[in-house]
Write a protein that binds this DNA or RNA. Sequence first.
DNA 1: ATCCGCATGTAAGTGGTTACATGATTCG
DNA 2: CGAATCATGTAACCACTTACATGCGGAT
Lengths: 181, 181
Amino acid sequence: MTLSRIILGFLSIQPMSGYDLMRAFATSAAYFWHADKAQIYRTLARLVDDGLARTEVIAGTHAPDRVLHHLTDEGRLRLRDWLAQPGTPQSTRDAFVARIFFAGELGDAELQSLIAARVAETTAARDALERIRAQTPAADPATDRAAWLRAMTLDQGIREHQEHLAWLERLRNGIEGAESA
Amino acid sequence: MTLSRIILGFLSIQPMSGYDLMRAFATSAAYFWHADKAQIYRTLARLVDDGLARTEVIAGTHAPDRVLHHLTDEGRLRLRDWLAQPGTPQSTRDAFVARIFFAGELGDAELQSLIAARVAETTAARDALERIRAQTPAADPATDRAAWLRAMTLDQGIREHQEHLAWLERLRNGIEGAESA
DNA sequence: ATCCGCATGTAAGTGGTTACATGATTCG
DNA sequence: CGAATCATGTAACCACTTACATGCGGAT
């Protein structure tokens, strides 16, 4: 359900192919939603079946055909309904934090190596978001609210990764301190 | 998979019934993992089938029977394997942030009411975590690392909720500023 | 020639949610 | 005496992941 509405959201910005959406989920949407390509193609097919999107085939000139998906009027209405709906409280799931919670029995070296791997992942994710932000013109809430809201979610994504890195650093220091004590 | 390992993690602290686990997921684990009761009972049954846990029925004296689940030696090994494994990068999913990302077409009032609802939710979640922390004795990494790691995840949960509230406040202010301009 | 990126999808399996079901105890 | 909480589970459905599958064009 949420995935289908997020796809409608992207189509409301511009018509997109399944592949375009894959890239959107891997980049701009990475901070708030993840979607697999199998899911994307399946969901697009359902949106077309339900009349919320329609397809337009662009013959490949020097590339494979692209199947562009346009939002229909019905689709735009449904998107709006979803946007205005107060969300059901979301369900957090983070396997790394779960590991740390139960990691009392692990040795110092194992813990530090888990943390180091996570630092690398988080840094890469933050840098990817920062690269997107660098390509995005500054936006003002009064003149272009849609762009401003997108910039605000991006900023928050970067900030959260930054906070997460600070936490990992505190963990690292705590373990080191205990080791030398 | 991750759910089954988290359950092993809880059983490694103490034997628990399905109901105990439900409460654990609703309280101490709320920050990093959510699990439905149907899932919990199904997964517990599978752990027993696979020999990673065993049951002990406690006859109810003035309450229904409880089925306590104990970790087996095999279960403890598998838990350790999972803990030491470098995690597959997790997949974020937050429907609220997704809404904000696409909410350009919503009116000020609708946006503010979405934000207000989220502030209420997040405040409640943060307060619930703070109540748990208040009941938890301070832990030191050198003396009781397991307790210290649990306290660190709890702290980080609280801090993230706090950060989220600060972001919601910036959103609120931006919308208000644009309105009056 | 070979690899990488573009572009599309299907099939099978696993994980997660919602609705259905039951019955005792405790508190107001 | 009614509602909430404790305690257990099942069935059906829906969402998500992983592996399989194909083929073109451009770069090295």
